[in-house]
Each structure stands twice: as structure tokens, then as C-alpha cells.
Design a protein around this nucleic acid. Sequence first.
DNA 1: CCATCCCGCCAACTG
DNA 2: CAGTTGGCGGGATGG
Length: 345
Amino acid sequence: MMYEGNNIISTPKRSALSEVTNSANYISPNANLKLLTNVALQENDFVNCNSLQQYPTPPSSAVHRKEKSLQILCDRFLELYPLHINGSIEMQLDCTAARLGVEKRRMYDIINILEAMQCAVHKRKNTYLWYGGTRLNAFLKMLKKEGENLKLSDALRGKAPKPPSPKHKTLGVMAQRFLMLFLVEPPNTLINLEMAVRVLIDSSNKNQMNLSPEQQDRQHKSKVRRLYDIANVFISVGLIEKVSGNSILKKPVFKYAGPLKTKKLNEVVLNTPPITPLEARTPSQIYAAKSKRKLEFTTSNTCKEIKFCISANTDTPSHKWNEILLVANMELTKINSAGNCDCLT
DNA sequence: CCATCCCGCCAACTG
DNA sequence: CAGTTGGCGGGATGG
């Protein structure tokens, strides 16, 4: 289901609208409106578009929910700011939001993740520098290394403590760690969200231990929600893909989809700024380098001071989840190791 | 049902 | 203190 022709090379824009569903009528009422807005904005690019914040918000009810998904929004974002570019370009958040016809809040969802993938850097208020995928491949290698340092592979299996999660930039960090899982595991490993959540919830904290089961449940759900968001933009970027239709596991799983949809990134690397070593303090003038709110990405040295949280004895109030995870694990390893001529495309 | 995840409130920061 | 960022979870949606 969904659309699967994802050998996309960022060309089909209206085909998307026309093919999306079988429900007869489809021209998307406000698609036109958005186009108009879009065009109008293009011309005014330089004009410091402030009045544009409040676009009409057309009969939003009419739009199918799927049309508003983060994945699609990210697709459209990537049309404006492609992964394949030389050098970099500046991007104004509010203008981009307006051009895409969405609230600014949604831009943060996307850009925070993409920023965590080194596709952009926060230059200053409302302004990012867009690098696209220029630095991505190099960064992926780094991510993999970092994932190994963090022992994520073991953590996944409850054999190692989950790396403590930072307080800020959680979306970006989650995104990085989520990706690390794929990089650290053998190719084509299938990972589902429940599994991913394990390494993303730091169970070693004091405040963590005495949480009511329902608080833990909330936390868990919250993380999963975030993971859905992250997965959606990753899919859009082409980093992972959803593998649905497993007879065994009903919940969808994801698999790494290789560096990028199209190659040719390899040669592009010109002199872009160095890749921020994950948590690295962006040394100098980059926006709010030392701000509390800024990049506190996985402190690479946090992993050296291992805290105990052997999965076995730390109460684990939500044993329910553990059972589920166990099953999921078993099933997944089964699938993963099955060299069978299964549904592998 | 319940998996998925849009939406926007509002706290945490910043200029 | 107004404006920006972004954590976070209610609850809509549609399979």
C-alpha cells in the first residue's frame, strides 16, 4: 500500500496528486491555492515575508489526512531544498513554511531532524544554511562509529545499558540514534519501533526508576510518536523504507535503504564546513553554539562511564512491553536471518 | 479497536 | 518582554 514507486528522483510533483488514491475525484481543492501562494511568494522572496504567516488555512478538513503527513510535507520540502546541491543555500523558515502552506511549527519538526543529519545548520534566528546531502555520507560513517561506541547493538538486546538521553534536542538525537541502529546492525536488518524505543528510553536515571507504570506508558507512547515522525522524514529522505506486509509481524518494520535515493553525492563534496561530530560544540559562530538549547547531541564520552541498568533486575514495571519486545525480537531475528526468498524486493 | 501521527498548547530559551 | 524554538501529549483519523 501507500505509494511504493520510490525510485523517485524528485521529479513527479503532480503525479503524486493524481496517483495517490483511487478515490475518484482528485485535484485537491487547496492544491491550487497553495500553488498560487507558492508562486506569489517566490517573487517576494526577498521581501521579508511577515504577513504571510497567516495564510488562509483553506477548508483543511477537506484534505485527506495523508496529504498532510510529515512524509509528504518533507517530500515537498525537499523539492524546494533538494538533497543534491553544490555548496549551500540560505533558507528562511517562515518563508518556507508559507510556501509549503504549513505552520512554522511543522518546519521545526522537519528541519530539526534534517539538521541532525547534517543537511543543514542553524545559522541564526529563522535562518538555516542548507547543505542537502552533501555531507550525509560522511556523516553516516560517523554515526555508525558512534553507534558502535554506544554499544547500541547490545543495548537493543538488553545486553548493554541504554545510552542516556540528553534533555535537549531530543528529536535530533532520537533521529540519530534511530539511524544508528540500522547502521550498526547487519545490512537489511529489520527494525520496528518497539525495538527502537528500547534504546531510546534511558532507564538508568533515578527519576526514571520511580515512575508510575502509567507514567512510563506515557513516556513510551510519546517516544513512539516521535519515532513515527522521524521515520517519516527518513523515508522521505530515502534513508529507510517501510517494509510492510509481513505475515508474521503485523506491525510495520523498517529497513535501511542505503545512503540516498540517488548517488552522485560522492563527488560533490566541496569545502563545506566540517561535519559536526555529533554532539560537538559547534565551535564558533554558528548560531547559539553553546546555548543550552543547542546541540547537545550524544556526548560521545557518556558511553565510557557506563551506568548500571542491567535490564534484568531494574524492576521493569512495564513488563508488558518486555514481553512484546521479546516476541518482536524473536520474530524479527527469524525474519532477518531467513535468507529465504521472502518478500524481499 | 488501536496504530498512526496531526495539531497546537505552552514551557524553555533568546535577542 | 516579545519572539523563537521545540517538548509533548490529546485526540482525530482511517484501516
